[in-house]
């Protein structure tokens, strides 16, 4: 019988700790691969017509083929405290990166429910690519220009009047308005193509999808990027219900991206149009959970433990890739 649930990441990471606690409440058989113990962790992987192997952390071992569910939120191993003094070529460094590489390979081919497979999460690191997938799912997306041409950026601003700019990779950046105060920095634009986006007015929504369950909330803030709003600016987050058609479209979109968990950033315009900006495949959902009381970690834990079923579409499309 396949029972163990495996968590991979850093103890102290809020979503990981929340899912850990929720799984403990379910009395699940837990195996925590804590990155703080990277130098005590080993993996063995054998592949022919099937995938076998085992994973050891300290004195505990788990048979890879027995793992039923996996939740991962690994940090950049090269920045772990255990590798602070390590260099490429040294045993600790090579061991840690070798462990990661084998783990990432196993996560792609494991038959367990993986939240989420690295290959399914990758498009989030190329935002224009993901925007095309969002459009294909039926949502409106803001007009977007990625350029290192100052004249093109200015022409785009002239056309849309209100424009923001932000990163397109997985590196977190603060969303800024492309206003007159930024013009002096245009000379630096040539160094790297930058994403400019039509500003879409409306009510901010954050929608978490777990399997086929929807947790939606509204966010009211005066800041251009509420995640970095000043403490006194006030961010008001409240649970809400989405129109059934929009909720269903969100579930189908996430399942089509082969994701079992996602945090979707959306905005409903005053005219009632729904814009979608991004689908985050590794959402820090606890921030919203604390504000709304929604039981997102419980839902993730139930999905991992088999107490609820993954979205049928995601199940159909998941596989070795």
């Amino acid at each position: 019988m396949r029972t163990p649930i495996l968590l991979w990441g850093l103890s102290g990471d809020s979503p990981l700790d929340a899912v850990f606690g929720a799984l403990q409440n379910l009395e699940a058989d837990l195996f925590f691969v804590d990155q703080r113990r990277i130098l005590e962790s080993q993996i063995s992987l054998h592949v022919d017509r099937e995938v076998r192997g085992c994973l050891q952390v300290g004195g505990r071992t788990v048979d890879l083929a027995s793992v039923a569910g996996i939740y991962l939120r690994p940090y950049d191993t090269r920045k772990l405290p255990a590798l602070r003094d390590a260099q490429p070529g040294q045993h600790a460094w090579e061991h840690a990166l070798g462990f990661d590489d084998a783990m990432l390979s196993w996560l792609e081919i494991s038959e367990a429910l993986v939240i989420n497979r690295p290959s399914a999460m990758a498009p989030n690191n190329a935002k224009p690519l993901q925007l095309n997938a969002i459009r294909a799912a039926g949502f409106s997306v803001p007009e977007t220009l990625v350029t290192n041409d100052a004249a093109a950026a200015l022409e785009f601003r002239e056309r849309h009047r209100a424009v923001v700019y932000k990163s397109i990779s997985g590196m977190r950046s603060i969303v800024h308005r492309f206003d007159d105060s930024r013009l002096e920095r245009l000379a630096d634009l040539a160094a790297c193509p930058t994403q400019f986006q039509q500003f879409v007015p409306g009510l901010e929504h954050r929608v978490h999808i777990v399997g086929d369950e929807v947790f939606a909330c509204t966010i009211r803030s005066e800041a251009d990027d509420y995640r970095y709003a000043e403490a006194d600016a006030g961010v008001d987050i409240r649970p809400c219900a989405l129109p059934a058609e929009i909720a269903e479209r969100c579930v189908r979109m996430v399942a089509g991206m082969q994701l079992h968990l996602a945090g979707i950033d959306m905005r409903r315009t005053p005219s009632g149009e729904w814009f979608c900006f991004e689908v985050n495949p590794s959402p820090a959902f606890t921030y919203y959970e604390e504000a709304t009381g929604q039981s997102i970690a419980d839902a993730v834990a139930e999905l991992l433990s088999g107490a609820r079923h993954p979205s049928p579409l995601a199940r159909e499309t998941a596989g070795v890739s």
């Binding site: 224009p128 925007l131 095309n132 459009r135 997306v141 007009e143 977007t144 220009l145 990625v146 350029t147 290192n148 041409d149 100052a150 093109a152 634009l189 040539a190 193509p193």
Partner: peptide
């Protein structure tokens, strides 16, 4: 300078 990519 000169790269441009649009969505859509």
């Amino acid at each position: 300078s000169g790269w441009r990519l649009r969505v859509p």
